[in-house]
Nucleic acid binder design. Structure first.
Length: 369
DNA sequence: TGACCATTGTCC
DNA sequence: GGACAATGGTCA
């Protein structure tokens, strides 16, 4: 029997808003067997016993099991040390305590390298008490790693060069790349805290995440340099054409096409970028926001893409997700809106409907007309 | 300290 | 040889 409550649904909802990943992203991961295997939640229980569960994972379980009201810790379970308790005050720690014992995230995280990363824990300049991992080839405090899985991240260390200098090239797993690309698609520059969150979730070092984003920005920029002149020309000929860096969406088949009315519920974010003032970006904010390269990376990525079609890189319509109920209401609103349009299709022409509902460019099919 | 960028080194 | 993670220099 559980002995202590881990967190309530309300807490998970609140914390989830500050988490890096949305519920549906976690759901995606779960479909790839990335969630802890020893979770014993069932649809028959109103309490889930899951020590060490992160808040966003808690949110995930609350989401898939609507009848759940609590998540509790069961001390009798082996290899399940007490997980993080819900902090009494959120003020001092805006981000959730995502990380319980390492093994608790084993299934969500990627596998270990063949050669474990040798990483250091460095003090942070801020008050945030999170792991900051140093260069993979530094040599203290290696993180606990799990046995590698086929197809997962591999790090190969080779003896090379006359100076005896060793260099490691990490091969990120598909899942890691999936998450990295997904995050990059939404935000080109991450804050320190976001990179820390991401690195821990992906079982990568902070430096690796930072490097990946840096390299990817350059790669993206290079790609745009080579493709945008042509694309812009084509845009003038065809207003529906877009110049999308392939990496942005290559992992999102069927998820991102929101201009057509699909609802990317996973894209809801409350960014903690200090330069954005922790703004909650709802759909109105997005629509009102003047989208420049400054928006991508307020700190440094300036003047790189001015007048170069940044709008084509804008994340699709995003919605604020305040809570599960809010999400449901959004979905319901969408359904209602769609229903209204469908009903309208009985009486108006497609052009009239498009004029009436400019934000909905869905294929409007009159119902049984 | 982080971003950009050229470069190096590794893997496929 | 291409792709790309990692490195180091430079700048703000």
């Amino acid at each position: 029997m559980p002995c202590e409550m881990f967190c309530s649904k309300e807490e998970a909802v609140i914390e989830q808003q500050n988490c890096l990943f949305s519920f549906s992203k976690l759901e995606e991961l779960s479909t790839h067997n990335r969630l802890p295997q020893y979770c014993i939640a069932t649809e028959e229980h109103d309490t889930i016993h899951k020590p060490g569960l992160s808040y966003n994972l808690a949110f995930f379980f609350f989401s898939i099991y609507p009848q759940l009201t609590n998540i509790s810790a069961d001390p009798t379970l082996p290899q399940c040390p007490p997980g993080p308790k819900a902090p009494s005050s959120r003020d001092s720690s805006p981000m959730p305590e995502i990380y319980g014992p390492e093994e608790n995230y084993a299934s969500l995280q990627m596998s270990s390298a063949e050669t474990p990363h040798a990483e250091t824990i460095s003090p942070l300049p801020s008050s945030v008490d999170l792991l900051v991992q140093d260069s993979p080839d530094s040599s203290t405090s290696p993180r606990v790693k799990l046995p590698p899985t086929s197809g997962e991240e591999r790090t190969v260390r080779k003896e090379d060069t006359a100076q005896g200098k060793k260099q490691i090239r990490t091969m990120f797993s598909q899942t890691q790349l999936y998450v990295l690309n997904d995050q990059f698609q939404r935000q080109k520059c991450l804050s320190l805290q976001q990179m820390q969150e991401l690195s821990n979730i992906l079982n990568l070092s902070y430096k690796q995440v930072k490097t990946w984003f840096q390299n990817h920005r350059i790669k993206c920029k290079s790609w745009q340099k080579n493709h945008w002149p042509k694309e812009r020309e084509s845009v003038t000929q065809n207003t529906t054409a877009t110049a999308e860096y392939p990496g942005f969406y290559s992992y999102h088949q069927g998820y991102l096409r929101n201009t057509s009315g699909n609802l990317p519920i996973w894209s809801n974010q409350t960014w903690n970028n200090p330069n954005w003032g922790n703004q909650i970006w709802d759909s109105q904010s997005w629509s009102n926001h003047s989208w420049t390269s400054q928006s991508w990376c307020p700190q440094a990525w300036n003047n790189q893409f001015q007048n170069c079609g940044e709008e084509s890189l804008q994340p699709q319509i995003q919605f604020q997700q305040n809570s599960i109920s809010n999400l449901e209401s959004i979905l319901e609103t969408f359904r209602e809106s769609h229903s209204v349009i469908q009903q309208s299709a009985k009486y108006f022409s497609t052009q009239q409907i498009m004029d009436l509902f400019p934000n909905y460019s869905v294929n409007i099919q009159p119902e049984n007309v």
